[in-house]
Protein backbone atom coordinates (compact mmCIF):
# COMPACT_ATOMS: atom_id res chain seq x y z
CA UNK A 1 0.00 0.00 0.00
CA UNK A 2 2.81 2.36 0.99
CA UNK A 3 4.63 1.48 -2.19
CA UNK A 4 1.56 2.27 -4.30
CA UNK A 5 1.16 5.68 -2.62
CA UNK A 6 4.79 6.58 -3.27
CA UNK A 7 4.37 5.73 -6.98
CA UNK A 8 1.26 7.95 -7.23
CA UNK A 9 3.15 10.75 -5.48
CA UNK A 10 6.06 10.30 -7.89
CA UNK A 11 3.71 10.59 -10.90
CA UNK A 12 2.20 13.78 -9.40
CA UNK A 13 5.68 15.18 -8.68
CA UNK A 14 6.80 14.66 -12.29
CA UNK A 15 3.51 16.13 -13.54
CA UNK A 16 4.00 19.31 -11.49
CA UNK A 17 7.73 19.62 -12.26
CA UNK A 18 7.14 19.16 -16.00
CA UNK A 19 4.27 21.64 -15.97
CA UNK A 20 6.56 24.41 -14.76
CA UNK A 21 8.80 24.84 -17.87
CA UNK A 22 5.97 23.85 -20.21
CA UNK A 23 3.80 26.72 -18.95
CA UNK A 24 6.60 29.26 -19.05
CA UNK A 25 8.25 28.44 -22.39
CA UNK A 26 5.55 26.61 -24.37
CA UNK A 27 2.16 27.87 -23.21
CA UNK A 28 3.10 31.52 -22.49
CA UNK A 29 4.16 32.46 -26.07
CA UNK A 30 1.05 30.75 -27.42
CA UNK A 31 -1.50 32.11 -24.95
CA UNK A 32 -0.23 35.62 -24.15
CA UNK A 33 -1.35 37.46 -27.24
CA UNK A 34 -3.03 40.73 -28.12
CA UNK A 35 -6.63 39.84 -29.00
CA UNK A 36 -7.27 40.24 -32.74
CA UNK A 37 -10.60 41.96 -32.02
CA UNK A 38 -9.27 44.56 -29.58
CA UNK A 39 -10.97 47.96 -29.60
CA UNK A 40 -9.66 50.81 -27.53
CA UNK A 41 -9.68 54.55 -27.46
CA UNK A 42 -7.63 57.09 -25.62
CA UNK A 43 -8.00 60.84 -25.25
CA UNK A 44 -4.97 63.09 -25.04
CA UNK A 45 -5.00 66.80 -24.34
CA UNK A 46 -2.62 69.69 -24.89
CA UNK A 47 -3.59 72.52 -22.59
CA UNK A 48 -2.39 76.03 -23.42
CA UNK A 49 -1.27 74.94 -26.88
CA UNK A 50 -0.31 77.04 -29.88
CA UNK A 51 -2.36 76.39 -33.00
CA UNK A 52 -2.30 77.81 -36.52
CA UNK A 53 -5.42 79.63 -37.68
CA UNK A 54 -5.63 78.66 -41.34
CA UNK A 55 -7.96 81.62 -42.02
CA UNK A 56 -5.35 84.25 -41.09
CA UNK A 57 -2.29 81.96 -41.33
CA UNK A 58 -1.21 83.17 -37.89
CA UNK A 59 -0.49 81.15 -34.75
CA UNK A 60 -2.53 81.76 -31.63
CA UNK A 61 -2.70 80.43 -28.10
CA UNK A 62 -5.71 78.20 -27.48
CA UNK A 63 -6.99 76.78 -24.18
CA UNK A 64 -6.94 73.17 -25.31
CA UNK A 65 -6.35 70.86 -28.25
CA UNK A 66 -7.77 67.35 -27.94
CA UNK A 67 -6.52 64.21 -29.69
CA UNK A 68 -8.76 61.15 -29.84
CA UNK A 69 -6.84 58.03 -30.76
CA UNK A 70 -8.81 54.89 -31.61
CA UNK A 71 -7.47 51.42 -32.38
CA UNK A 72 -9.70 48.68 -33.79
CA UNK A 73 -8.57 45.14 -34.59
CA UNK A 74 -9.62 43.85 -38.01
CA UNK A 75 -10.17 40.13 -37.33
CA UNK A 76 -10.87 39.09 -40.93
CA UNK A 77 -7.73 40.83 -42.27
CA UNK A 78 -5.66 39.28 -39.46
CA UNK A 79 -6.87 35.76 -40.38
CA UNK A 80 -5.93 36.30 -44.03
CA UNK A 81 -2.43 37.56 -43.20
CA UNK A 82 -1.92 34.77 -40.64
CA UNK A 83 -2.35 32.16 -43.38
CA UNK A 84 0.46 33.63 -45.50
CA UNK A 85 2.72 34.79 -42.67
CA UNK A 86 2.35 31.66 -40.54
CA UNK A 87 2.24 33.82 -37.43
CA UNK A 88 -0.46 34.97 -35.04
CA UNK A 89 -1.15 38.43 -36.42
CA UNK A 90 -3.06 41.48 -35.24
CA UNK A 91 -4.21 44.16 -37.68
CA UNK A 92 -4.98 47.48 -36.06
CA UNK A 93 -6.83 50.21 -37.88
CA UNK A 94 -6.09 53.43 -36.09
CA UNK A 95 -7.32 56.98 -36.28
CA UNK A 96 -5.75 60.02 -34.66
CA UNK A 97 -8.38 62.72 -34.72
CA UNK A 98 -7.27 66.16 -33.58
CA UNK A 99 -9.89 68.66 -32.47
CA UNK A 100 -9.40 72.36 -31.82
CA UNK A 101 -10.92 74.31 -28.89
CA UNK A 102 -13.99 75.14 -31.04
CA UNK A 103 -14.66 71.45 -31.67
CA UNK A 104 -13.57 71.68 -35.30
CA UNK A 105 -11.26 69.13 -36.87
CA UNK A 106 -7.58 70.12 -37.00
CA UNK A 107 -6.32 66.92 -38.56
CA UNK A 108 -7.23 63.28 -38.98
CA UNK A 109 -4.61 60.67 -39.76
CA UNK A 110 -5.49 57.01 -40.26
CA UNK A 111 -3.11 54.06 -39.91
CA UNK A 112 -2.99 50.34 -40.51
CA UNK A 113 -0.51 48.59 -38.23
CA UNK A 114 0.15 44.86 -38.66
CA UNK A 115 2.16 43.02 -36.03
CA UNK A 116 2.91 39.69 -34.33
CA UNK A 117 0.30 39.12 -31.62
CA UNK A 118 2.87 37.88 -29.08
CA UNK A 119 6.21 39.56 -29.87
CA UNK A 120 4.72 42.80 -31.29
CA UNK A 121 7.30 42.64 -34.10
CA UNK A 122 5.94 44.38 -37.19
CA UNK A 123 4.63 42.09 -39.93
CA UNK A 124 4.91 43.37 -43.48
CA UNK A 125 1.81 42.76 -45.54
CA UNK A 126 -0.21 44.70 -48.10
CA UNK A 127 -2.25 47.42 -46.44
CA UNK A 128 0.40 48.57 -43.97
CA UNK A 129 -0.03 52.34 -44.21
CA UNK A 130 -0.12 55.77 -42.59
CA UNK A 131 -2.62 58.31 -43.91
CA UNK A 132 -3.00 56.29 -47.10
CA UNK A 133 0.77 56.13 -47.78
CA UNK A 134 2.33 52.67 -47.85
CA UNK A 135 4.93 52.35 -45.11
CA UNK A 136 7.28 49.65 -43.81
CA UNK A 137 7.56 49.66 -40.05
CA UNK A 138 10.80 48.31 -38.59
CA UNK A 139 9.87 48.93 -35.00
CA UNK A 140 7.08 48.78 -32.46
CA UNK A 141 4.25 51.29 -32.17
CA UNK A 142 1.72 52.00 -29.39
CA UNK A 143 2.70 48.96 -27.30
CA UNK A 144 5.89 47.24 -26.08
CA UNK A 145 6.32 43.44 -26.07
CA UNK A 146 5.26 41.32 -23.12
CA UNK A 147 8.10 41.13 -20.56
CA UNK A 148 9.64 44.40 -21.74
CA UNK A 149 13.38 44.59 -21.17
CA UNK A 150 15.53 47.41 -19.83
CA UNK A 151 16.93 48.35 -23.22
CA UNK A 152 16.33 50.64 -26.17
CA UNK A 153 13.66 49.63 -28.68
CA UNK A 154 13.09 50.63 -32.28
CA UNK A 155 9.95 52.79 -32.41
CA UNK A 156 8.01 53.79 -35.51
CA UNK A 157 7.14 57.45 -35.91
CA UNK A 158 3.90 57.81 -37.87
CA UNK A 159 4.48 61.50 -38.70
CA UNK A 160 7.95 61.02 -40.19
CA UNK A 161 7.17 57.45 -41.39
CA UNK A 162 10.58 56.40 -40.05
CA UNK A 163 11.83 54.10 -37.31
CA UNK A 164 14.42 55.20 -34.75
CA UNK A 165 15.45 54.11 -31.23
CA UNK A 166 13.40 54.95 -28.18
CA UNK A 167 15.71 54.92 -25.19
CA UNK A 168 15.21 53.18 -21.86
CA UNK A 169 15.83 55.88 -19.23
CA UNK A 170 15.22 54.05 -15.97
CA UNK A 171 12.71 52.31 -13.74
CA UNK A 172 10.10 54.38 -11.95
CA UNK A 173 6.84 54.03 -10.04
CA UNK A 174 3.72 55.49 -11.62
CA UNK A 175 0.46 55.42 -9.59
CA UNK A 176 1.75 52.42 -7.63
CA UNK A 177 2.86 50.51 -10.72
CA UNK A 178 6.51 49.71 -11.48
CA UNK A 179 7.21 51.11 -14.95
CA UNK A 180 10.09 51.47 -17.39
CA UNK A 181 10.47 55.02 -18.68
CA UNK A 182 11.29 55.42 -22.39
CA UNK A 183 12.09 58.59 -24.29
CA UNK A 184 12.61 59.40 -27.95
CA UNK A 185 13.58 62.73 -29.47
CA UNK A 186 12.68 63.28 -33.08
CA UNK A 187 14.70 66.23 -34.43
CA UNK A 188 13.15 68.71 -36.86
CA UNK A 189 12.11 66.60 -39.83
CA UNK A 190 10.25 67.49 -43.01
CA UNK A 191 6.98 65.55 -43.03
CA UNK A 192 4.09 65.28 -45.49
CA UNK A 193 0.90 67.28 -45.06
CA UNK A 194 -2.10 65.24 -43.86
CA UNK A 195 -4.38 64.08 -46.69
CA UNK A 196 -7.34 65.77 -44.98
CA UNK A 197 -6.68 69.44 -44.28
CA UNK A 198 -8.71 71.50 -41.76
CA UNK A 199 -9.92 74.01 -44.36
CA UNK A 200 -12.19 72.96 -47.19
CA UNK A 201 -10.69 73.51 -50.63
CA UNK A 202 -7.11 73.25 -49.38
CA UNK A 203 -5.38 70.02 -50.28
CA UNK A 204 -1.81 68.82 -49.66
CA UNK A 205 -1.19 69.25 -53.40
CA UNK A 206 -2.39 72.86 -53.45
CA UNK A 207 -0.19 73.69 -50.43
CA UNK A 208 2.78 71.97 -52.04
CA UNK A 209 2.38 74.18 -55.11
CA UNK A 210 2.98 77.27 -52.92
CA UNK A 211 6.36 75.87 -51.91
CA UNK A 212 5.44 75.72 -48.21
CA UNK A 213 6.69 72.65 -46.37
CA UNK A 214 5.66 71.07 -43.06
CA UNK A 215 8.24 70.31 -40.37
CA UNK A 216 7.86 68.43 -37.13
CA UNK A 217 9.82 67.68 -33.99
CA UNK A 218 8.82 65.87 -30.83
CA UNK A 219 10.02 64.47 -27.53
CA UNK A 220 8.04 61.29 -26.99
CA UNK A 221 7.77 59.82 -23.48
CA UNK A 222 6.23 56.53 -22.39
CA UNK A 223 5.83 54.97 -18.96
CA UNK A 224 5.59 51.24 -19.76
CA UNK A 225 4.45 48.51 -17.38
CA UNK A 226 7.10 45.85 -18.15
CA UNK A 227 5.09 42.62 -17.63
CA UNK A 228 2.31 43.53 -20.07
CA UNK A 229 4.36 45.96 -22.18
CA UNK A 230 1.47 48.40 -22.01
CA UNK A 231 2.11 52.13 -21.61
CA UNK A 232 0.22 53.43 -18.58
CA UNK A 233 1.02 57.03 -19.44
CA UNK A 234 2.24 58.87 -22.51
CA UNK A 235 3.35 62.41 -23.21
CA UNK A 236 4.65 64.28 -26.26
CA UNK A 237 6.27 67.69 -26.47
CA UNK A 238 5.07 68.15 -30.00
CA UNK A 239 5.96 71.01 -32.38
CA UNK A 240 4.95 71.56 -36.00
CA UNK A 241 5.96 74.40 -38.29
CA UNK A 242 5.16 75.49 -41.82
CA UNK A 243 8.26 76.79 -43.57
CA UNK A 244 8.87 78.88 -46.69
CA UNK A 245 6.73 79.29 -49.75
CA UNK A 246 4.23 81.94 -50.73
CA UNK A 247 1.58 80.74 -48.26
CA UNK A 248 3.32 82.42 -45.32
CA UNK A 249 3.38 85.92 -46.84
CA UNK A 250 7.11 86.40 -46.71
CA UNK A 251 7.64 84.85 -43.28
CA UNK A 252 10.27 82.14 -43.00
CA UNK A 253 8.18 79.94 -40.75
CA UNK A 254 5.03 79.82 -38.68
CA UNK A 255 4.08 77.48 -35.81
CA UNK A 256 1.28 75.13 -36.88
CA UNK A 257 1.06 73.42 -33.51
CA UNK A 258 3.04 73.43 -30.27
CA UNK A 259 1.92 71.77 -27.10
CA UNK A 260 2.53 69.31 -24.30
CA UNK A 261 0.22 66.44 -25.19
CA UNK A 262 -0.75 64.19 -22.26
CA UNK A 263 -3.30 61.47 -21.59
CA UNK A 264 -6.52 62.73 -20.02
CA UNK A 265 -6.79 61.96 -16.29
CA UNK A 266 -9.78 59.57 -16.53
CA UNK A 267 -7.98 57.59 -19.24
CA UNK A 268 -4.86 57.34 -17.07
CA UNK A 269 -6.93 55.87 -14.21
CA UNK A 270 -8.72 53.48 -16.59
CA UNK A 271 -5.44 52.34 -18.20
CA UNK A 272 -3.68 51.80 -14.87
CA UNK A 273 -6.60 49.64 -13.60
CA UNK A 274 -6.68 47.62 -16.84
CA UNK A 275 -2.92 47.09 -16.86
CA UNK A 276 -2.91 45.97 -13.21
CA UNK A 277 -5.54 43.33 -14.06
CA UNK A 278 -3.76 42.09 -17.20
CA UNK A 279 -0.43 42.05 -15.36
CA UNK A 280 -1.79 39.43 -12.95
CA UNK A 281 -2.91 37.22 -15.87
CA UNK A 282 0.53 37.38 -17.52
CA UNK A 283 2.28 36.74 -14.19
CA UNK A 284 0.13 33.60 -13.75
CA UNK A 285 1.75 32.14 -16.87
CA UNK A 286 5.27 33.46 -16.40
CA UNK A 287 5.74 33.31 -12.66
CA UNK A 288 3.00 32.20 -10.25
CA UNK A 289 1.99 28.90 -11.89
CA UNK A 290 5.48 27.78 -13.09
CA UNK A 291 7.09 28.53 -9.72
CA UNK A 292 4.19 27.11 -7.73
CA UNK A 293 4.08 23.86 -9.69
CA UNK A 294 7.88 23.46 -9.46
CA UNK A 295 7.82 23.88 -5.67
CA UNK A 296 4.85 21.50 -5.39
CA UNK A 297 6.66 18.99 -7.62
CA UNK A 298 9.74 19.05 -5.39
CA UNK A 299 7.63 18.64 -2.25
CA UNK A 300 5.76 15.68 -3.73
CA UNK A 301 9.03 14.11 -4.87
CA UNK A 302 10.46 14.43 -1.35
CA UNK A 303 7.31 12.85 0.08
CA UNK A 304 7.45 10.01 -2.44
CA UNK A 305 11.10 9.30 -1.64
CA UNK A 306 10.44 9.41 2.09
CA UNK A 307 7.56 6.94 1.78
CA UNK A 308 9.68 4.68 -0.40
CA UNK A 309 12.56 4.79 2.08
CA UNK A 310 10.21 3.90 4.95
CA UNK A 311 8.81 0.97 2.96
CA UNK A 312 12.29 -0.44 2.35
CA UNK A 313 13.56 -0.13 5.98
CA UNK A 314 14.33 -3.65 7.32
CA UNK A 315 11.89 -4.98 10.02
CA UNK A 316 13.08 -5.07 13.66
CA UNK A 317 14.46 -8.55 14.45
CA UNK A 318 12.16 -10.84 16.54
CA UNK A 319 13.25 -11.42 20.18
CA UNK A 320 15.36 -14.59 20.47
CA UNK A 321 15.15 -17.14 23.35
CA UNK A 322 18.08 -17.13 25.71
CA UNK A 323 19.65 -20.63 25.86
CA UNK A 324 21.79 -22.16 28.50
CA UNK A 325 25.40 -22.59 27.39
CA UNK A 326 26.18 -26.20 26.67
CA UNK A 327 28.81 -27.79 28.89
CA UNK A 328 32.10 -28.22 27.27
CA UNK A 329 33.83 -31.49 27.89
CA UNK A 330 37.37 -31.31 29.03
Amino acid sequence: MRRKASLVLLACAVFCAALSPLLRWYAFPRLARIPANQYQDVVLEAKGATLLDYGTMRSRKVPKVTIVQTLRGDVEAAKKIEKSAGLPVVVWDGLSYVQGPDGKMVSRVSERYIFDAHSQDPVHAPGEAVDGDTVKRDGIEFKWPFLTQKRDYEYFDAQARTTSPIHYKGTRTFRGVKVYYFEQTVPWTKVPFPKVMPVQGITPESVARTGTTRWYSTVRRFWVEPVTGAPVFGEELHKEELRGGTLLGGRAKVTAFAGDVKMREDYIEHTVALVKHNRTLILMLTSYLPRGSLILGLLLLSLALWLEARGRRPQDPAPTQETEPEPVSA
Partner: peptide, 14 residues
Protein backbone atom coordinates in the same frame (compact mmCIF):
# COMPACT_ATOMS: atom_id res chain seq x y z
CA UNK B 1 -10.27 35.66 -31.89
CA UNK B 2 -13.81 37.04 -31.78
CA UNK B 3 -15.17 39.43 -34.40
CA UNK B 4 -14.19 42.90 -35.53
CA UNK B 5 -15.81 45.46 -33.28
CA UNK B 6 -18.76 47.27 -34.90
CA UNK B 7 -17.79 50.45 -33.04
CA UNK B 8 -16.45 53.27 -35.24
CA UNK B 9 -13.07 54.98 -35.17
CA UNK B 10 -13.93 58.05 -33.12
CA UNK B 11 -14.23 61.57 -34.49
CA UNK B 12 -15.80 62.95 -31.32
CA UNK B 13 -14.32 63.26 -27.87
CA UNK B 14 -15.72 60.55 -25.55
Amino acid sequence: TGRTSPKPLLTTVP
